[in-house]
Design a protein around this nucleic acid. Structure first.
Lengths: 236, 236
DNA sequence: CGATACTGCAAACGGCGTTCGCAGAAAGGA
DNA sequence: TCCTTTCTGCGAACGCCGTTTGCAGTATCG
């Protein structure tokens, strides 16, 4: 039945029992990758670059990691560990999930490459499992079937990524923003000038309210979506 | 002021006025790429493969496209055109947006690679612009400031992608599901067996309700989130 | 009827993920 | 004790990738 076990890196022992002690560790390798990605994006995380940062050759990494994607799994798990799950918990589920969401947002802002790497969700590592358990525990008092809770947490994670992406895209305004964004702005301005998209023109002309920082927008959207998803009534 | 215009492919004319007529077209190239991606995923869309499918060499593609990413932009715009924006409109904004969302979902199910390509949103092409205009028109009667409407549409798009992703991941159950999913299932089962994550164990043990097809889950989540986002009251 | 501005495309370049093969070191069994 | 086993590090190479260069050919302009 078991075709080939230990395919997941999290089920593989970090080192064998026989040979010499490994020179590096998963954590060191993950940290090296995270440093590279923080500095120059996910594309800068090549096997050669990580090996160089560790002072070795590319082939050596394959003693710790089966593939580049697995290295990125290590990196994802590493930064997912930055969430503080030990906090006491406010007692109300909405408050607790909001705290979780804000921490997720902070992680995305600190490590924007995470947006290109599947994020908090896709390949679940140990820290993501702990995160899930924590979120489900916060929802323990809510009287809904467990599947709906998992759905809500999944939507929450996706939403956090979405809002963080928007925040990052707008945050670089004024500075040297990436090329593709200049291009897109140029194209949109041309579309507006053509005059065939009145609603879009109006929406883009409206300036964002100055007194509404991104922080409150984040909280507002998350709160509204979560309360909408988990309310008890049975509509239609 | 204008450093270098025509950097966006949508502002570049499809052909110059002087030389011989191009042998291919953006649409043909996009279609070839879509066919490859539909069959074998986004990774199968290499310049060489697309060129082969068209019966030419890789270098020739660069007469039509500045980079591989731009080719993928063409593909995204191509499948975004599958949305039918000519439908009359039900008159109620929620119904109209739901119709849009369902069509977006269908596109993701038909072209799963779109999930790995930034999706309906990231690089905005002509069809995405029309889509945006259509969605904003549907919201014309709602009394909220335009920025909030753009936010809601953005969240809607992200949500559609999220739900489509979940549906695709679960849809292959029973058949030959991809390797990484077997690995993840194995790891999660091990985590549950260890016994330190009771809430997670309970949630995973709960079977999905048989009488609740994915279709209604989709509608329910979208509806709840949209009504939550666009309701008029001012909560705290 | 040049001059011009485009087209198609073979060939090559540098960089990537990954594999192979072998020298050397630590633990297990006799 | 010593040999076998099983691990380790890693130089070198393979095949594939996106992209650039250069040139021969062709349609339009003045």
């Amino acid at each position: 039945m078991a075709e080939d076990p230990d395919r997941s890196i999290w089920l593989r022992p970090e080192r064998g029992a026989r040979g010499p002690a490994p020179e590096y560790s998963r954590i060191r390798i993950a940290a090296a990758g995270v440093a590279l990605a923080d500095a120059d994006g996910l594309g800068a995380v090549t096997m050669r670059a990580v090996a160089d940062a560790l002072g070795t050759g590319p082939a050596s990494l394959y003693r710790y990691v089966a593939t580049r994607d697995e290295l990125i799994e290590l990196m994802i798990n590493e930064v997912n560990g930055e969430i503080d799950l030990a906090a006491p918990g406010a007692g109300h589920w909405l408050q607790d999930l909001l705290t979780l969401a804000r921490q997720g947002r902070d992680i995305y802002l600190r490590h924007p490459w995470l947006l290109d790497a599947g994020g908090l969700d896709d390949p679940i590592g140990p820290n993501a499992v702990d995160y899930l358990e924590h979120a489900l525990a916060a929802l323990a008092g809510v009287d809904t079937d467990p599947r709906t809770k998992l759905e809500a947490i999944g939507v929450l994670n996706g939403l956090v990524a979405l809002l963080a992406r928007a925040e990052i895209a707008q945050g670089t305004t004024g500075r040297t923003l990436p090329q593709w964004q200049r291009d897109q702005a140029a194209y949109l301005s041309e579309v507006v000038k053509a005059g065939r998209h009145p609603h879009l023109a109006a929406a883009l002309a409206a300036r964002p309210p100055e007194d509404d920082p991104a922080e409150s927008l984040f909280d507002r959207v998350i709160t509204r979506v979560l309360t909408g998803l988990l309310r008890q009534d049975t509509p239609s």
